[in-house]
């Protein structure tokens, strides 16, 4: 957790990250930036999905609808935060010549999305037959 707080300080300190190590080939930085943007898109898609569940599934019971929407929105918010954090950590690792950071976040996110998808299948099926 203290690692996270230290990373958090880097988010808002553009100069501090430049003080570390040496500037990598700009193409590596751009690749890191594209990865960051891909994560932001994922976050936006999850947030959009949360809105969509609430707007386009009005027949669902209130609890199920709000629960699904909140799960998607929480995943989106986490994704956005994690996008910046991962970008900062990758940038720092490249500057220091270290290995890129590994993370279990992608696995956790896929599990969460899978769980939401399974719940939606169940909800649709139950509505058909119920």
């Amino acid at each position: 957790m203290s690692d996270f707080v230290r990373d958090l300080r880097l988010w808002f300190a553009p100069r501090r990250i430049r003080e570390e190590g040496e500037t990598p080939d700009y193409r590596f930085s751009l690749a890191n930036e594209r990865t960051f943007l891909a994560w932001v898109r994922t976050a936006l898609a999850l947030v959009g999905g949360g809105f969509a569940v609430d707007q386009f599934l009005p027949d669902l019971r209130w609890g199920a609808r709000v629960g699904l929407a909140l799960a998607l929105l929480a995943a989106g918010a986490l994704c956005a935060l994690r996008a910046v954090n991962h970008w900062v950590r990758c940038e720092r690792a490249m500057r220091r010549g270290e290995d890129l950071p590994v993370s279990r976040f992608p696995a956790l996110l896929s599990l969460a999305v899978g769980a939401v998808a399974a719940t939606m299948v169940l909800a649709v099926l139950l509505r058909r037959h119920g």
């Binding site: 880097l10 553009p14 751009l30 960051f36 932001v40 976050a43 936006l44 949360g50 929407a69 929480a74």
Partner: peptide
């Protein structure tokens, strides 16, 4: 290179939409 400030601003926009959605729900 991308500055941390730009990265944070871009992520903050999606975060704002998410918080917004929760507030509406």
């Amino acid at each position: 290179g991308l500055t941390p400030r730009t990265a944070t601003a871009a992520a903050a926009c999606s975060l704002a939409l998410a918080c917004f959605a929760v507030a509406l729900l």
